[in-house]
């Protein structure tokens, strides 16, 4: 491989303050009608860095990404890619590879025709285009299906091709919007591994997800977004350190769960509670110490507890700590 994929590894000097940021968003703000969808979001991504934007449904991940890719104008704020402003039709676009949240391919064209078409849009042509199409088909494991129409593909194959179509022009910044939604575990692992590899090869990656395991596994830095605001940012380790003293207790149960959650909130040692989907989640100072009181409260509130789990601090706990709600769907 050549070009953007073999940029020297700049991990040593990566960080939020690196002047040579590949992506620099400053003060991005956007409303839809009266709804403020994105509120003053600023973030920077260094070369070779994988940045995860973690947030629940409707947090504003896609809206942010659409502004980063120049598909949506910001009410305020700027986006620069490798120092170039992202404005309509600007050369900055040639540096970005965009993987939309929903598969965006032509089902009535073959995989190869789709790739050739999108390659053309990035001004690839001739031998170079043919080579890149072959490489991307190989990378996505679709070489022997290249001549088949996309409508005959499985969901996982479409997802892979959806990513592949953004890699043809060897982008400096790869932007992926929830690329693993609705993908089987095996394809998901393959996708995560390849995203990891892109970062390792020197590409800057902006990755959105609402799965905290994904963010923890592949991202160098994570920004937590909720209600259009970036509420925390740091390496997964830094973020988890904020709640290092806390355990998360997850109970699956039936009964009046919101009432039970409120009751738990009154217990000493419980700092945050949330309920939903047959589950009550507590953020507590010491899981083992508080558990008897919690089970006691459950019995009093006539709650049938199916299972109890005490979990080490993770990004899920961070989110609960910061927002008072849990991240899971």
């Amino acid at each position: 491989m050549d070009g953007a994929l073999t940029l020297t590894d700049t991990r040593s000097d990566r960080g939020a303050d690196t002047p040579a940021a590949v992506l620099d968003c400053a003060g991005l703000t956007r409303s839809f009608g009266d709804r403020l969808a994105i509120d003053d979001v600023s973030l920077r991504i260094a070369p070779g860095e994988t940045y995860g934007l973690l947030g629940p449904n409707g947090a504003g991940k896609s809206t942010t990404i659409r502004m980063v890719c120049g598909l949506l104008t910001a009410d305020a704020g700027t986006v620069t890619v490798a120092g170039l402003p992202m404005t309509p039709g600007a050369p900055a676009r040639a540096l970005v590879g965009y993987v939309p949240q929903d598969v965006a391919l032509y089902p009535d064209l073959t995989a190869r025709e789709n790739l050739r078409f999108f390659g053309h849009m990035y001004r690839l042509r001739g031998k170079q285009l043919a080579e890149r199409v072959a490489e991307v088909l190989d990378l996505t494991g679709l070489t022997d299906r290249g001549g088949d129409r996309v409508e005959s593909f499985s969901g996982g194959m479409r997802r892979r091709l959806n990513i592949g179509a953004a890699l043809l022009h060897r982008p400096t910044l790869l932007v992926l919007d929830e690329p693993t939604v609705g993908v089987d575990p095996q394809s998901r692992h393959a996708i995560l591994d390849s995203v990891r590899a892109f970062g390792a090869a020197g590409m800057a990656v902006l990755y959105t997800t609402h799965y905290m395991e994904e963010a923890e596994r592949i991202c160098d830095r994570v920004g937590i977004i909720d209600h259009g605001k970036l509420i925390a940012e740091g390496t997964p380790r830094e973020l988890v350190a904020q709640v290092a003293e806390r355990d998360r207790v997850e109970l699956t149960a039936t009964g009046n769960l919101p009432g039970f959650a409120t009751a738990c909130a009154a217990l000493t040692g419980v700092t945050h509670t949330d309920s939903g989907d047959g589950m009550v989640t507590l953020l507590v100072e010491d899981g083992r110490a508080v558990l008897p009181a919690v089970l006691d409260a459950a019995e009093r509130a006539d709650i049938a507890v199916r299972s109890v789990q005490v979990v080490e601090p993770d990004l899920e706990s961070v989110f609960l700590h910061l927002t008072g709600t849990s991240l899971r769907e």
């Binding site: 890719c69 039709g89 965009y98 965006a104 999108f118 849009m121 990035y122």
Partner: peptide, 15 residues
């Protein structure tokens, strides 16, 4: 609607 237009506009292709 199916996102391919976004994909094209994300490329350096003017409206």
């Amino acid at each position: 609607a199916n996102g391919t237009l976004d994909r094209i506009t994300a490329a350096p292709v003017g409206p």
